[in-house]
Amino acid sequence: MVDLQVEIVPGLVLKNPVMTASGTFGYGREYTPYLDIAKLGAIITKGLSLKPKTGNPGTRITETACGMLNAIGLENIGIERFLSDELPQLKQLGADVIVNIFGNNQDDYAAIAARLDQVAGIKALEINISCPNVKAGGIQFGTDPQAAANLVAAVRRVTTLPLITKLSPNVSDITKVAEAVADAGSDVLSLINTLVGLAVDIDSRRPLLGNITGGLSGPAIKPVALRLVHQVVKAVDIPVIGIGGIASARDALEFLLVGARAVEIGTANFINPQIGLEIVTGISDYLEQHEYEKVTDFIGSLQV
């Protein structure tokens, strides 16, 4: 048996390096007919805000070559309903839960983090500073290193939970934001969120999404994500989690190879709700065949 356990930081040890990405796994419970969610490294919730939020009007998704554009707009049930209606069941199911949070401003982020600090059954917080689909909240923090650092510092002050900051690829130099949030107290970085894209219909001469632009995800973005993870791993000393276009065990292993300590599976969950555990098994099988004793021996072993 290959040892798949990874310690991201001392307070955040995962039974295996495979997690599910925010916004693609609902609140977790929806997947119980398909797999035992307790066997995943962790599940990451849909982005949660202080108050419930409705999403964007009009068409919210459209498929593009080997990928999809979404403009959901961070629709969610709000933190209180998550705590009362969803978290108890996730605990009962034995899932390791990471909560993804966002807000309209720094105070919102800090308020959610403070609210979750003493809640049992939450392993870590993932701060979304990178959603391209809402005007306020998210991306304006993710593209400005100083704003991102201030935000992370504000959240850091009110929580003892491990903090993961989720970075946007929609910047000219991702290492600037990465270094700024690492200095401000983020324990871990995760990347990438979706790439801003546009799809139009030449017949109706209209954009295909109600929000006009959307976030591109799926296999189409994997090379971009891999390059950014590689770049950030070299630039910072804190652990990095790789996200973007992962749809097989080999894809996941590519991210581990370039130095990601763990991965998150997103869009692929829509196509095959069992993909998360298939990837866990696939990673284990590959490492066993290649005579690794533990996954940590493989992580970061890229030779250039």
Binding site: G23, G26, E30, Y31, N70, E75
Partner: peptide, 16 residues
């Protein structure tokens, strides 16, 4: 409505 997942996890199909 347009659907991505079909089982309630993407919120792509939401109707008012």
């Amino acid at each position: 409505n347009r659907m991505a997942c079909g089982f309630g996890v993407c919120l792509g199909c939401v109707q008012k």
